[in-house]
Computed example of a mutant assay.
Amino acid sequence: MARYGQYCPITRSLELLGDRWTLLIVRDLLVGAERFNELARGLPGLSRGLLSKRLDHLVRAGLVAHVDGRYLPTQAGEELRGVVFGLAEWGSRWAFGEPRADELDATVLLWWIRGGMDATAFGDRERTVVHVRFRSGARRQYWLVVSRGDVSLCFTDPGFDVDLRLEGDLDALYQVWEGRMEYGAAVRDRRLVVTGPTDLVRALPRSFRFSPVAPFVRQAMASLAR
Results as ranks from 00 to 15, higher is better:
V162C: 10
A101M: 11
R202N: 10
I10F: 10
G116P: 00
G62Y: 12
T107G: 06
R226N: 06
V108M: 09
A2T: 13
G49F: 06
R218C: 01
F160P: 06
G123F: 01
P215V: 02
W112F: 10
R202Q: 10
L192H: 06
L110M: 13
G97E: 08
A33W: 05
D150F: 15
P44F: 00
G116Q: 11
D124Y: 03
D161L: 15
H57Y: 12
W112I: 03
L200K: 00
L166V: 13
T128R: 09
A121I: 08
V217W: 01
P158W: 03
L14F: 07
L23S: 07
E182D: 14
R48A: 11
P9G: 08
R209A: 11
R190Y: 04
T195P: 01
R190N: 12
P44K: 11
G168V: 07
R135S: 10
D199A: 11
T195W: 01
E178L: 14
E103C: 01
G62A: 12
F134D: 01
V108G: 05
L23P: 06
L164C: 04
L204H: 09
R41H: 07
V187W: 05
D68R: 09
L104T: 00
F134Q: 04
R93H: 14
V213Q: 01
R139K: 15
F210W: 02
A33F: 07
R35W: 10
H57R: 14
G62P: 04
Y4L: 13
F160G: 13
L80W: 00
F208P: 01
L43M: 13
L80V: 02
L39H: 03
R218L: 03
D102P: 01
V187E: 08
V201I: 05
H66S: 12
Y4M: 08
D118G: 03
L224W: 08
P9H: 10
D19Y: 10
G159V: 13
L23Y: 02
D28G: 08
W90T: 09
Q219S: 10
A2P: 13
R27L: 04
D189P: 09
G18F: 04
R218T: 01
A138C: 04
D102Q: 11
P197G: 00
G115P: 02
T195F: 04
A220H: 07
L24I: 12
L109R: 01
G137E: 00
A203Q: 10
A40L: 03
W111C: 09
Y142C: 00
R60H: 12
P73C: 05
R148A: 15
D56W: 12
R226H: 07
M221E: 04
Y71H: 10
E78C: 00
V83Y: 12
G82I: 03
E15H: 03
D105Y: 06
G179V: 13
W143M: 02
R125N: 11
A186K: 00
R20V: 13
L58A: 06
L192Q: 09
A185M: 15
R35D: 14
P9K: 04
